[in-house]
Design a protein around this nucleic acid. Structure first.
Lengths: 339, 339
DNA sequence: AACGCTAATCGAAACGTTTCGAACGTGTCA
DNA sequence: TGACACGTTCGAAACGTTTCGATTAGCGTT
């Protein structure tokens, strides 16, 4: 900017005023300055600007795994939304590890991000302190956090699983295996409640040996399914709590020599673009990824636009059961239950 | 830092020296400063640091679509690598649009990223000027760029498609539909050559009506497949040039009432974690995503470590044909060809 | 006792912006 | 003619660091 000012024989203040439109600049100087900018190929240094202004027009986004299609889609939507608004997005993957998450959040705050969207991990860690101590707005994504009172957008997980399990029950399934993620995050907690309530509502017992948990990875789903399938009285259906784990479920079913849906029915959380192309076409609970991403972005953009004092807003969206062909009706039992 | 200095009754220069280890600080002052840092909860401002140092420890990464599983995986690997090295990653999706890409690169450069990894779009746009004019190191990912002479890591696309198509020919297919992306980017160009060469090597004619192109999206694959399937003499096999497009291909096959591989064989570029769980299990060309991501990260990290003057390095990795069950042998024809 | 050497510490400039208040020239009004 | 307002322009401080050269204190030498 100094060079531009010299070349145009004006002060840097004038150049800045013109660039930001903060003061009227005479046509004559405007022309000289614009010419100088072109000649020099000047680009404003956003870092210096950030330092002075205290704002970076950059936000931080942390998710557990970007390869989980649910997060891939949501990240994509969020990225687009902030792109439109002229913000850059710093992406971090925490790999379901609390320490990693804390480190990355620290990294982001050091870099003075204007806001944070977090699909948290563990019990929140630093998150609580940040929401309380700093005035960096935080939006929780997908997962609430005990004791952290801030904007959030989540799914009605309990209801979604309730519906899915009820659907399985209506098909005649009585022993329904349930594979969950670690129970310290809200969606898994709520989904578990939905599972139990659906069984109870149908007057079915909750068999604890049918409930397995893992750390969200394919291998966890695989192991859990192996255990379920080697039970003395194995389940006739399995509900898997996320996408990577259901892939593990399908592999376990294949490896053990069974087939879906003939031998065992499968449903799961999170839809994916190819779910209705291949066989078995999985019955899933689809999350409204577009809406989730947009709402999260909007909540944060609203705070960034200055609306700091509004009380925390919590948006709860509805899942949608996508019924396909991976669950088969169980004839005899179906009748006895629906009777 | 000023507050810390005051609280510890030292100068800011000493605090800075201690924090950076650039000078020895007496145990006494060290202790006072560390105490003050704890008391105040001081965090160094990375923006001010960046301004002074001229480095942000942040890199920019642009890809066409993060929802394309190939890019999802590569982004994930790159993100991890830079995370380990203490760098933050700004992610941008260009949506296969050159203007968007140019804007985003500008945005990234304004923010003084230390380096750039680009899976480019279009003819490169600003890219060329940046590589020449700035001293921000650039690594091209997946796609080379005419006239841009810089580090790159790509696949041997020609060979990969040659192998895949040759495999189809060995199975007895003679009319092999080929769905490609826009031909202005190097992988599509090279893959097309691989396709033609495989046919020629087998003494088969290249029928232009069997070649369709689209803009990488599912819908493009769908439309292209619809056209191929409504040809008078329709192909017995289709090779689709990326993942979203092959999903379109599968949907078109389904919608037109055919089935794979009974009525038509399908193979495609890019593997995915679920490709061997569902039916048909797609035969694919798997890219070494882990290696691609790591190599790209390493190339850039090496430049960032100071190795600026080495000549551009171009890494060419090999694809791997994953033979599954989506392509069936064509009895009679197979014999006449292999005879 | 005067000197020089080393180690520790500090003051101040610099990075590239924004912004506030001051200065300047010009035209208007009393 | 002098006071005043207005529209432009500018000088300089500030944002929070790093870094260079200067300063100081302590200590061994001669």
């Amino acid at each position: 900017m100094l060079h531009v000012a010299e070349a145009a024989r004006v002060s840097v203040a004038t150049v800045s005023a013109l660039l930001n439109g903060t003061a009227t600049v005479s046509p004559e100087l405007t022309q000289r300055i614009e010419q100088a900018i072109r000649d020099i190929g000047y680009k404003r240094n956003a870092i210096a600007r950030s330092l002075k202004m205290g704002t970076t027009r950059t936000i931080g986004l942390t998710v557990p795994h970007i390869t989980n299609p649910f997060f891939t889609d949501v990240v994509s939507v969020i990225q687009q939304a902030f792109d439109r608004a002229g913000y850059a997005v710093m992406l971090c993957c925490t790999d379901e590890d609390l320490n990693t998450q804390d480190e990355q959040i620290r990294l982001l705050l050091d870099r003075m991000v204007d806001g944070l969207i977090v699909a948290r991990v563990g019990d929140g860690g630093l998150l609580k302190g940040i929401v309380e101590d700093t005035n960096v707005p935080v939006v929780l994504l997908d997962r609430l956090c005990e004791g952290v009172d801030t904007d959030a957008v989540v799914l009605d997980n309990q209801r979604a699983v309730f519906d899915a399990v009820t659907y399985l029950i209506h098909l005649g399934h009585r022993r329904i295996g349930y594979i969950t993620g670690t129970s310290d995050i809200s969606p898994m907690h709520d989904r578990m409640i939905g599972y139990r309530e659906a069984l109870q509502a149908a007057g079915l017992p909750v068999a604890e040996e049918l409930i397995r948990s893992g750390n969200f990875h394919e291998i966890d789903g695989y192991n859990a399914t192996m255990q379920l399938l080697s039970l003395h009285d194995r389940p006739s259906a399995i509900f898997s709590a996320n996408n990577p784990m259901v892939i593990g479920t399908m592999k376990a079913i294949r490896d053990i020599g069974l087939s879906c849906p003939e031998d065992i029915s499968v449903a799961c959380f999170d839809d994916f673009p190819w779910s209705d192309v291949f066989v078995p076409q999985l019955t899933t609970v689809a999350q409204p990824v577009q809406a989730i991403g947009e709402q999260a972005a909007n909540l944060l953009l609203d705070r960034l636009a200055g609306n700091r004092d509004a009380p925390p807003r919590k948006l709860v969206l509805k899942g949608r059961l996508m019924i396909r062909s991976s669950c088969r009706p169980l004839g005899a039992i179906a009748q006895s239950v629906s009777a």
